[in-house]
């Protein structure tokens, strides 16, 4: 390649990745600084960051699959909650954790299908469709919730052999329970599908200009259904994470707004899997820090203020660093075929 061309490529490369790389460099520098000072605390905070981010990143992937195909999913919270409940109950009854996770995922997918039916086929306002799912989940899980049920166990960390022995990186990245691993893999999978496969191209086309997709023989309704159902399955996995991996039991309203935070994470990440992952990690980090600070008790600040940290951070970052994000053009608009 000639020099000017490669120079242009380099500029393009910088334009595309420059900000991300700079942020990564700063983050790494900060991590190493703290690791040198207090390795145990740093490890704990980072590991907690990753785990806190799991339901958020899965929820955000659910949201962005839907919205890339122009279906707004505000029911992620409900999908997670219902999946957490069903997963937990299956675990209580059968003691089979894998089966329980699968049932949680299936629950999410079924609720995804319900949302798709309401918003794609019936063309109900999508916000209302999602709200229906949220209310349904809170109502059903609250009604059938039984105090005192306990399950035989939860998903435990699986150290990945020698990788888990690497200092800092090992305990943080390679000594995690299965759904945490899965969430990381899924970020890459969703990115690949969305940006490097025909299905992804069609999905994005359906989200931007469904009529154009239709005139090229793409089945707009099918694309939307599949994306929303697969998204639901991911939200289901997030629910399973909460009740089967993080806590090991079910509590009323245990999602505690994570489904909505996931939507913020999705927007923050500009509707891209990696962006969402970064955003989820930031939220996770803020939560982890808050816990750590409250534990340490060194700061003489009322704990309520420390509790605000994640939200404060969100506002600062959203307002200061993220440029104007642009949602898919047809987002939230039901598609009507002609003729």
């Amino acid at each position: 390649m000639s020099t000017p061309a490669s120079f242009a490529n380099w500029k393009l490369f910088w334009k595309r990745w420059g900000i991300g790389l700079s942020i990564a460099a700063v983050v790494l520098a900060v991590i190493f600084y703290f690791y040198a000072r207090s390795p145990r605390v740093t490890e704990a905070v980072l590991a907690s960051t990753l785990r806190q981010s799991v339901p958020l990143v899965l929820g955000a992937l659910c949201g962005l699959l839907g919205e890339r195909a122009a279906v707004i999913n505000i029911g992620i919270e409900g999908q997670m909650l219902m999946a957490a409940y069903v997963g937990f109950m299956v675990n209580v009854r059968t003691g089979n954790l894998l089966f329980a996770v699968l049932m949680g995922v299936l629950t999410g997918a079924v609720l995804g299908a319900l949302l798709a039916f309401m918003s794609v086929t019936l063309k109900i306002d999508q916000i209302i469709g999602g709200t229906v799912i949220n209310i349904l989940a809170i109502g059903l899980t609250g009604y059938f919730y039984q105090v005192g049920l306990s399950a035989q166990g939860k998903l435990n960390p699986i150290p990945l052999g020698p990788l888990a022995k690497i200092p800092l990186i090992g305990p943080v990245l390679f000594d995690n329970p299965p759904i945490t691993y899965a969430s990381i893999v899924l970020v890459f999978v969703v990115h690949y599908v969305l940006f490097h496969t025909p299905w992804g191209l069609r999905t994005r086309a359906v989200g931007e200009h469904p009529r154009a997709a239709d005139t090229l023989g793409i089945n707009v309704y099918l694309v939307r259904y599949v994306n929303v159902i697969v998204g639901g399955a991911l939200a289901g996995l997030a629910g399973a994470y909460l009740s089967l991996e993080a806590v090991g039991s079910f509590e009323r309203n245990m999602t505690n707004g994570r489904g909505f935070v996931a939507l913020a994470v999705m927007i923050f990440g500009k509707w891209t899997p990696f962006g969402a992952w970064g955003a989820a990690l930031l939220f996770g980090f803020a939560t982890a820090m808050q816990t750590q600070l409250q534990f340490a008790g060194k700061l003489h600040i009322p704990h309520q203020f420390i509790g605000m940290l994640p939200y404060l951070l969100t506002i600062v970052v959203l307002a200061g660093f993220v440029g104007r994000a642009r949602p898919p053009a047809a987002d939230g608009i039901p598609y009507e075929k002609e003729g």
């Binding site: 086309a205 931007e208 200009h209 090229l216």
Partner: peptide, 20 residues
């Protein structure tokens, strides 16, 4: 026009009949 505004020319060209 039935073009996806945020896609490149090449992406618009192949949409629905993608080479893989």
């Amino acid at each position: 026009f039935m073009l996806v505004p945020v896609f490149t020319v090449a992406e618009n060209l192949i949409l629905g009949a993608e080479p893989t």
